[in-house]
């Protein structure tokens, strides 16, 4: 009797014990920093007198002051608009290419599929900083093969690292780095579709294009939703690529993306309080977008299941 009860107790305690390391790490490196960021965002530094001597600088309650400052800061708004423009290029192009390649890999009688699949997936292994660095050099007129070709053809040579083309240059780095991973996600779920599903359509004489549009794409919709979701989050957080291009051009400011502004406020200007407020705003926007998106995606699938 007692041993049985002890065993039951052991089973009951076990999941909590197994989850202990994750819980401690979560508390230390997620919950505590988030709490601290929120606390910082609601405070500011008050300087007494000349700000000399100990106790002259103290942190006082600021209410929502940091937030109103951040939201009325035109630089943050411009950064958000830049990232919006960047995302409007990156996400459709990257996911479009990923879906296209996945469908092509899944076609009958395609050749060299293992090689091309690996080649397209390869950029996933290359750090964003290194990717930006490689492309950055390829954008430099003195080094770039594109300029060489344009020059030979006698065509005008745009400055890829300035103005509108800068968006394309940055987007290209993200598309290059992200297409392969998304292609693999979509391709794996394409392969999970049982072959019988196509048989009937094939017997009815459906073309490969019809099969792709009417059967394959609807069936991989959940993985498209997932890749879209992760792409949005990654786009909102763009940081290392523009930061890496910065030394190569004057057109990328230190506040090009909202996250770069947060970094600049915190470490460039040592204004951790407004940096915290901006970071909290970005986090809230990310969370709102994510939940809104997941909700619509969920209700969509539920509607479809109900049908």
């Amino acid at each position: 009797m007692t041993s049985a009860r002890r065993k039951a107790y052991g089973v009951k305690g076990a999941p909590y014990a197994f989850l202990l390391p994750a819980t401690i790490l979560f508390a230390l490196f997620f919950a505590l920093p988030i709490g601290y960021a929120i606390w910082l965002s609601l405070h500011k530094v008050q300087v007494k007198g000349l700000g000399l001597g100990s106790g002259a600088r103290s942190e006082v309650w600021a209410g929502l002051e940091n937030y109103t400052d951040a939201l009325t800061d035109s630089e943050l708004l411009h950064g958000a608009l830049r990232v919006l423009g960047y995302g409007a290029i990156v996400i459709p192009v990257m996911l479009g290419l990923a879906l296209l390649f996945a469908l092509m890999l899944d076609t009958d009688r395609v050749r060299l599929a293992p090689f091309t699949r690996l080649a397209i997936f390869l950029p996933y292994a290359i750090p964003g900083v290194v990717a930006a660095l490689l492309w950055g050099f390829l954008y430099l007129p003195d080094v770039s093969p594109f300029y060489f070709v344009l020059d030979k053809l006698g065509m005008p040579q745009p400055d890829l690292l300035d103005g509108g083309p800068l968006y394309l240059a940055l987007s290209n780095i993200a598309v290059w780095g992200g297409t392969g991973f998304n292609m693999i996600v979509i391709y794996t779920s394409l392969r999970a579709i049982p072959a019988e599903v196509y048989e009937a359509a094939k017997l009815d004489g459906a073309t490969p294009l019809q099969i792709a549009l009417r059967i394959k794409i609807p069936m991989v919709a959940p993985s498209l939703v997932l890749t879209f979701f992760f792409s949005i989050i990654a786009t909102l957080q763009v940081f290392s690529e523009p930061t890496t291009l910065k030394p190569l051009t004057n057109s990328v400011s230190t506040t090009w993306s909202p996250l770069m502004k947060v970094y600049q406020d915190a470490f460039g200007k040592s204004d951790i309080h407004s940096a915290a407020a901006t970071a909290v705003i970005i986090a809230l926007v990310t969370l709102a977008l994510s939940f809104g998106f997941l909700r619509t995606a969920n209700s969509r699938t539920r509607q479809e299941e109900a049908r």
Binding site: L97, L105, F115, A119, I120, I126, L134, F137
Partner: peptide
């Protein structure tokens, strides 16, 4: 037996993805 359009599309994709790597190896 070879599906030309898909194979060509994939080869172009592979070329695009390998281009910077080939460049850095040569540079």
């Amino acid at each position: 037996r070879i599906a030309f359009v898909p194979t060509l599309t994939l080869l172009l994709g592979a070329l695009y993805c390998l281009l910077p790597v080939a460049w850095v190896a040569i540079a």
